[in-house]
Amino acid sequence: MSEPRHRLMDFVREEIMPHRFCSGCGCGTVLNAFTNAVEGLGLDSAEMVCVSGIGCSSWIPSPYFRADTLHTTHGRPIAFATGVKILRPDLTVVVIAGDGDVAGIGGNHLIHAARRNIDLSVFMVNNMIYGMTGGQVAPTTPAGVVTTTTPHSNVEPPFRVADLVVAAGASYVARWTTYHVFPLLESMQNAIKRKGFSFIEIMSQCPENYGRRIGLRTGIDFLKQFKEQALRVEKANGMSEEELKDRIVIGKLCDKERPEYVSELHRITREQVDKLKKEMGGAA
């Protein structure tokens, strides 16, 4: 008997499935949610460009998601995506990459893209560790954790990346976890639909290179913890730092309209072209 075929196989590069993520890894769930989101929006992959960097979660679009794909250098996917979006504003450009890429080595590109409010959707898969390279401390690793490069415990506090992106001026920002798949899926759709810079921080699990160091050995352990730690942003508002310690604030952190960067650039070009046309008396 032949195996059943998942309808979402239409959205992935089926010939290379199953993917190579570890058992219980959150990247597979993010890929699942993302393909569901794209299906739900009725987007044609010919209208999409997916950009990623270096790290496990960058494999979600590259190679697995079936669309035009740009698998870039470590930390730079947002900068590469900027070039794509400016030249092809009609395409939906989505960046999927990890916390190391987006908030670590590429943190500068993140805040500037948010400041410009360029119409990109950035889905940052935050597993709180450098997983692909073997479990080194990340800018998102909680303090006190032992990693391969903080063998005597991490003394740095982690970035709350979504809050940073709100402060930098993004149009749409949310945080969810791989446990909250239904709201995550819907949030991805809202992010893609929102014109301007959209950012979702997706708390995700790495049982292999993070979990086993902090006593969460399986994907299940992580999801249980995400469920416990999750706190709706509506409830978190007004709570003290102390109360929010060890909690994951989930939900939509901002959703606002602001002038969008690429449209503004094209407006200037149109104006300048028209001016020259006029100057030359309409000659070609």
Binding site: M17, C25, C27, G28, T29, T178, G219
Partner: peptide, 13 residues
């Protein structure tokens, strides 16, 4: 469909 969506492998329909 929670299982279908949580599944990291597209293994449940």
């Amino acid at each position: 469909r929670l299982c279908e969506l949580l599944c990291p492998e597209f293994a449940i329909i």
